[in-house]
């Protein structure tokens, strides 16, 4: 097409508008948080990270995210295989339903889990409590809330890949006498490997950052049920430079993890394509 002066002006204008928009909405604010974290140098940041509450919060966040991701990975691989490779009544409904957790407000997720699993009034929570399992205001509730919000991410990655690879190789393996498990480990798993890793990184990033749902089900008690995101909220609302630096430090680390996850994903995507 002829690149006239008018077109060039339009292109430049559009480019500048887009870059300006992203600068004011994302780039500058994110850079400011990094700058504020280190505004008094490195020492207060390291002090903040040494606080037992901070260490505890990150440990709790990591372990809850770990279990949520393990559950979602197993569940996600299973559901994806079922949705793609099998037919059964209600398949289409299930296909639509697995996306539901992405559209539900985290606050509604928290409320929903409390209504069922609260030891005081919950539908199932009362009997679980009698059996000695406390869900709400305890780690199992945090894991469930985290697993809820990141549930579709692995499935979302695997379903298109499973469709793409088809079943010829799997059928060949089966006809040569491989068991179902052997076929899965030798044929299916290597083929979906990058999609799976991608989905797991996404789930992990989402799980580490969950706030609203976890706030409701955990109660957010320091040193007991306070995760990293809840710590950011609590410390930011308290007075004093130390609290403020602690909030910014925890936020900075969460942001850093998120950006690293993004970079991993960015570099994985092309590799995933060439691997096919």
């Amino acid at each position: 097409m002829h690149d006239t002066a008018a077109h060039r002006v339009t292109r430049w204008a559009l480019r500048l508008i887009v870059i300006g928009y992203l600068l004011f909405l994302v780039i500058w604010p994110v850079a400011l948080v990094a700058a504020k974290t280190f505004s008094n140098g490195l020492a207060p940041v390291i002090d903040a990270l040494r606080q037992p509450e901070v260490i505890f919060a990150f440990q709790l966040t990591l372990s809850a995210a770990f279990w949520a991701v393990v559950i979602n990975t197993i569940f996600g691989v299973g559901i994806s295989l079922l949705l793609v490779r099998y037919t059964f009544p209600g398949r289409r409904a299930l296909n639509a339903m697995v996306d539901l957790p992405l559209s539900v407000s985290p606050v509604v997720v928290g409320l929903a889990l409390v209504l069922v699993y609260s030891g005081r009034t919950g539908w199932l929570g009362q009997s679980l409590e009698q059996a000695g399992l406390q869900v709400i205001y305890a780690p199992p509730g945090i894991i469930m809330a985290t697993a809820f919000v990141s549930l579709p991410l692995v499935i979302r990655e695997l379903v298109p890949v499973l469709h793409e690879i088809g079943t010829e190789q799997e059928q060949a393996a089966r006809s040569l006498g491989a068991s179902g498990l052997q076929t899965f480990v030798r044929i299916t798993l290597p083929a979906i490997k990058w999609g799976l890793i991608y989905g797991v990184v996404l789930s992990l990033a989402r799980s580490l950052g969950e706030f609203g749902a976890v706030k409701i089900v955990s109660g957010g008690v320091a040193m007991r049920t306070q995760t990293a995101t809840l710590l950011v909220e609590e410390r930011y609302q308290q007075f004093g430079v130390v609290n403020s630096i602690t909030a910014y430090t925890a936020a900075f680390i969460l942001a850093l993890i998120a950006v690293i996850a993004l970079i991993i994903i960015t570099s994985l995507r092309p590799r995933r394509e060439t691997s096919q």
């Binding site: 950052g209 706030f211 995101t229 936020a251 942001a255 996850a261």
Partner: peptide
């Protein structure tokens, strides 16, 4: 970034 960043952050 807005997707990956925790909402509180």
């Amino acid at each position: 970034i807005p997707f990956a960043l925790p909402t509180i952050v």
